[in-house]
Amino acid sequence: MNLLIIEDEDLTADRLEELVLQYDPTINILAKLPSVRETVQWLKETRSSGRPQPDLILMDIHLEDDLCFRIFEQVDLPVPIIFTTAFDEYMIKAFKVNSIDYLLKPVNYDSLAAALQKYQSMKRQFSQADLESLREAMGIRKVEYKTRFLINVGTRLRTIETADVAYFYSEEKITFLVTKDNQRLPIDYSLDKLTPILNPTDFFRANRQFLLSLPAIKNIHTYSNSKLKLELQPDPKTEVFISKEKVSSFKDWLDA
């Protein structure tokens, strides 16, 4: 089992690791992360590069930079969670997300072992392969991405399937959807709003202006200063670059 520890006090994080390994030395601790920012970054990076994802998370409520609930606002996290905290004022809120238990600090071996057993018995009630139903039973929302867009064209309404979209781009604060057959339609979403609701395997945020699907990429050229230059189809009639900082996550995405 892969486990992720999210805790801002190093000593407490070490202690949790010790207790988990005492319960079952075969549990694989993927990482210990202290903040909302680092957790979101870790989840995004490991997902896009196909590295192992946690089966279970131990999560502190108060983190270095914010309350842990902010993580759920930034990434879909369909993983059961055991919360840990020194006091219980957030208990109700914690149970609204995928929590299977709630441990008070200092966490002792018995309460942690009971929580891990609870997780394992919930898991056993379903066939190992049937993770979806396990998630449903735990009230975890299935990851659902946007499948189509409703668009006003003059007085007509039309729908465009997400699968028919080549790319999205913004120009002078208006976002356009460009279909594979080169229809250019303004939509009411900003690129920042679109990025999290589209399947990250299908769409990549190339830069501030472009959100691309894979089939839209016709050619990739290496360019000066470690940038990449893209040729898209349909032709956007403007130059599209992958910045130096995004090159490695772009390659990961292509190689997924």
């Binding site: 006090e9 000593l11 202690r15 020194a86 006091f87 600090k105 200092p106 966490v107 002792n108």
Partner: peptide, 18 residues
């Protein structure tokens, strides 16, 4: 004080053997 006490005890439970 209660919050502070429990957090301190949590630290201590890790520190005590280390």
């Amino acid at each position: 004080s209660p919050h502070f006490l429990f957090n301190s005890l949590s630290v201590l439970s890790s520190l005590v053997r280390k």
